[in-house]
Amino acid sequence: MTVEMTLDLYGNAFWLVIIIVVVIVGPALVVGLAISVFQAATQINEQTLSFLPRLVVTLLAVMYAGPWIVMQIMDLFQFFFLNIPRLIG
């Protein structure tokens, strides 16, 4: 296995992790920003007002994107396991 192949495999795995994190955390970030703007405009400093909607949106994102995330991870590991002989040698 060459250095280029190793870096390519690590790059693909790292890119998949970044995409999965963005899919899960992105909606929570948008909702958190909207709630922060609302809190700043109304001067309400309630912590649960910020926490609960982000939690719900994150759970909905995991529920909605969960099958896609699992399929992407399975495809990556299937590629790794099927190509072990070629990668080793």
Rank of each mutant, 00 (worst) to 15 (best):
Y64R: 07
M5I: 13
L49E: 03
Q47I: 12
N83Q: 10
Q47N: 12
L76E: 10
L29M: 08
G89V: 10
A61I: 00
E4R: 14
I35S: 04
Q47S: 15
T2V: 14
L55W: 10
V22Y: 00
V70Q: 04
V23H: 00
D75I: 12
L7T: 12
V25H: 00
Y64M: 06
L9V: 07
M71H: 14
T42M: 13
D8G: 14
R86Y: 11
A41H: 14
P67L: 01
Q39Y: 02
G89I: 10
P53T: 09
I35D: 02
F38M: 09
F79V: 06
V70T: 07
Q43I: 02
V56T: 06
I20L: 03
V31Q: 02
I19G: 07
A61F: 01
T2D: 13
E4Y: 14
A13G: 10
F14E: 09
T58W: 00
P85Q: 10
Q39V: 01
I19D: 08
I88H: 05
M71Q: 12
W15N: 14
V57L: 06
V25C: 00
I35E: 06
V30G: 04
F80D: 04
D8T: 15
Y10N: 05
A65Q: 01
L16T: 14
V3L: 14
M74Q: 09
R54Q: 14
P85W: 08
V3D: 11
V17W: 11
I18R: 00
A61C: 06
V30P: 08
A41P: 12
M63V: 09
M1H: 05
S36H: 03
M63K: 09
T48L: 08
A28G: 02
I24D: 05
M1A: 12
N45H: 10
T42R: 11
A61P: 04
A41M: 15
R86G: 10
T58S: 00
R86Q: 11
G26H: 03
L29E: 02
L59F: 02
V30M: 06
T58N: 00
V57E: 04
I84R: 08
I88K: 10
V3F: 13
V23Q: 02
F77Y: 13
V17K: 10
R86V: 07
N12G: 15
N83S: 07
F80S: 07
L9F: 08
I44N: 03
A28N: 02
V3A: 11
I18S: 01
G66N: 09
P53Q: 07
P27D: 01
I18D: 02
A34G: 14
G32D: 03
P67N: 01
G66I: 07
P67A: 00
V31H: 00
T6R: 14
A41I: 15
Q47V: 15
I18Q: 03
L59G: 05
A34H: 07
T2F: 11
I35L: 09
V30S: 08
I35W: 01
T2Q: 10
V25F: 00
A28D: 02
E4M: 15
F81K: 07
R86N: 11
I84T: 11
E46D: 11
I88W: 07
V56A: 06
L33E: 09
I88E: 05
I19H: 03
V70H: 04
V70F: 05
L52I: 07
M71V: 11
Q39W: 03
E46A: 09
M71D: 15
I69P: 01
V37F: 12
I73F: 05
F77W: 14
A28H: 00
R54M: 09
A41N: 15
V21G: 04
L7K: 09
I35V: 13
G11T: 15
P67M: 01
